[in-house]
Amino acid sequence: MCLAIPAKIVSIDNQRATVEVGGLTREASVVLLPDAGLGDYVLMHAGFAISLVDEDEALETIRLFEQLAGGSFLGEGPSETGLDGLSPGGTGLDGLSPAE
């Protein structure tokens, strides 16, 4: 429903930023994301930065994939891996992050 891709803020002046994607740069508005700063990765949608990309979370997810691809998961049960995101406590958003 909505295409948005990660872009890096390479300059910022008030509500206008220049963002970089794969060597291309473009103007973007950060009016919807006032906390965004130089060097941050943001999700770009229709010329606006709409969300910060959490680099730590991204790397954590990638690490999880690498472990899986490398076959280093010992347990066969899904909940032992963290991959299925099932929260041990059982309810709601406490278990939001599969990396936790």
């Binding site: 948005a4 990309v53 979370e57 995101g85 929260s87 958003l93 278990g95 939001l96 990396a99």
Partner: peptide, 10 residues
């Protein structure tokens, strides 16, 4: 439950 896979974006 509501669970979040897209931790880097949300």
């Amino acid at each position: 439950e509501v669970a979040l896979q897209y931790t880097r974006g949300v």
